[in-house]
Each structure stands twice: as C-alpha cells, then as structure tokens.
Design a protein around this nucleic acid. Sequence first.
DNA 1: GTCTATAATTCGATAGAC
DNA 2: GTCTATCGAATTATAGAC
Lengths: 187, 187
Amino acid sequence: MSRKNDKRDRLVDAADELIYQQTFNSTTLADIATKADVPLGNVYYYFKTKDDILKAVVQKRSATLQAQFSQWEQQIPNAKERLQAFIGHSTEISHTTAKFGCELGSLCQELGKYAGELANLAAELMHRTLTWVENQFKILGKGEQASILAKYLIASLQGVSLLTLTFKDPNLIQKQSKNLEQWLETA
Amino acid sequence: MSRKNDKRDRLVDAADELIYQQTFNSTTLADIATKADVPLGNVYYYFKTKDDILKAVVQKRSATLQAQFSQWEQQIPNAKERLQAFIGHSTEISHTTAKFGCELGSLCQELGKYAGELANLAAELMHRTLTWVENQFKILGKGEQASILAKYLIASLQGVSLLTLTFKDPNLIQKQSKNLEQWLETA
DNA sequence: GTCTATAATTCGATAGAC
DNA sequence: GTCTATCGAATTATAGAC
C-alpha cells in the first residue's frame, strides 16, 4: 500500500477523537490538522469539505463496530454471553463516558437535530447496533419480542450514559450494567 | 412592571427555543436577536456575553420546571398519579422530541462535554428533576429504593428520547411511556 | 503531492452617536 | 436606553508556489 493514505488516516483518527471529545460543530479543521500533524492547507487534498471528514469518521466507526461484532461472534459461541460482553463493554469505558458521554449517543444527539444526510449517517450507526442486539435476542428464541428487548437494552444504556456524563460519575453506568446483566439472565 | 425587561424576556425566549432546536454552540447572537426582533447591538445592553444568555435560559427553564412540579403537586394529590403525569408528559411532546430530542437531555449532552460552570448549570436542571421524581417514590414508601427507581425512570425516558430523535419516530417514546406507566403500577 | 499564504465569510463583542 | 456601524478574531476554503 502506498503511503498516500497515511495522512488521510491520521486526519480521520484525529477527527474521530476530537468530534467525540468536543462536538462536530465545535471541532475546527485547524484542531484536526494540528492533532494529525498535517498542515492545514493540506487537509483539502484529502477532503473537499468539513462534512466529508465527518462522513469518513462515520465510515471508520461503522467498520470498527462491525469488527467488534464479528470478534464477539467468533470468540463467544453463546448469544446470551455475547450480549453480556456488549453490556460489559460499557463498564470498561465508564470513565471515558463520564468525561465525554457515549460516542454513538452524542453523535446521534448532535446530528439528529440537523436535517439531511448527516442525520442519516448517525442514525445508520445506531440502527446497525440495534439490529445486531436484536439478532442476538432472536438467536435466543425471543421471536417478536427481540426488537422490543433490543430497544430496551440500548435505551437503558444510552439513558444512563447521559446521566453518567451529566454527573461525571462512572459508577452510574457501572451499576446499571450489573443490573442489565442480571435482567438479561431472567428476561 | 416597567417595560425594561420586555426585550430581555423576548431575547431569553428566543434563545431558549433556538438553543433547543439547534444547539447552544451553533446558535448565533444574530439568530437570537432576529427572532426576538431586537437589534443585534442592543443585545449587549441586556447580556454581557453569549454565555450570560445561556445562564438566563437555564434559569428560565429551572423556573418552568419548578412551576410544573408545583402544579402537579397542587392538582394531583396522589404521588403515583403525579409520576404518571410526569411520564405522560413525554407522550404529549413526542412529536417535538422526534424533531429535536429532549430539551433537558440535549442540553446536558452538549454542555456535559464542556468543563467549568456551564456544565454544572445543565447538571443542576437534571438533578432537580431527579430529586423531584425521587421524592415521589419516597412518598410512595420506597425508602432506599427511591433513588434507584428515579434514576431508572429518568434514564429510560432519556434513552428512548434519543432513539426517538435518531429515528424520527414519535411512536418509540409513546410506547415506552405506556410501558413505564405499567411498570409504575407494579414497581 | 505538499505546503504557505491568504481570501471570504461569519461571529462575538465594542465604540459611540442619538 | 437604543441602535448603527464596525472591529478583531476565528474559521472554512482556495490559490498557487514548490
């Protein structure tokens, strides 16, 4: 592979992190270029507009999500245990959540208010997550209930992530994760 | 009362609406001044900085919240029915939620990433809401559980509000409200 | 392909006339 | 108290040398 994509990747990585820690709107091209150690004027060789950078970030996150799901599917044969892993992941990142919220949730919140294409990009990430969780419930034989259970699980984690951010308290999502893991056993 | 505060009130009302429909960061002083029908330069007679407008908006929202809680307490003698009213309110505003999300949630999400005073302002609004719900559960004799139940209820509504915004589907929060009203009967 | 310099615009904030 | 005019900084985006 040529080194051509080297800088592009660095720009996307920098944008990804900054958009999460700040917001898309308040992240400037200068921020991204500085963090990626790429001269500002050079950014436009790789991306036509700021929106294009966001699209690349969403694509990267989509691939990361897919990779995580694939990994769980390969390493964890039981669907219920895969869901436990999904819930447990929230606990692992709880301290980051207390600082910046949920990566997916904050993007959906910000872009959801926009009209047009950008809103759909965030919605697709959420949809992909929802669908994967729903599939796990279907494998567990939940049938028609799978969709409802998936929405319940995602909404619970998103809601408590917001409280975790608001009160800067990682403990909130840690406790909720434990509750949800128990709920999963009896659901 | 002098008409002095007339323009100030209009500015706060306009800012309140715009900050909800857009975000605080992307709402410009020109936006606010135009919507309030006040010349841009005159804004600075009433507010020193843009942050000061936000503080006034939060104060207004805090007062609105307090008024709503007081009204429920006066008109609804039963604590469980007050909580039903609280939940039912989400259904009433579901179409607006599908467009712009939860007024409280989106503010906490945006300001939560900031450091300093502004983050605390949003957290106080959330705390006030949480405390009121918790008190209703205490009145119902839930004791130590009251705090957990309150967080569960708020997180559920916040999480599903985000999904409602993301997928532009008022039905999501409507269904969840029904579920929560049933949950409340048996909790 | 890379980078400097800068154009074009927007935004928060101020000066100062009335 | 009110409003016009505008400044200075920040930000997206471009032109053009190398």
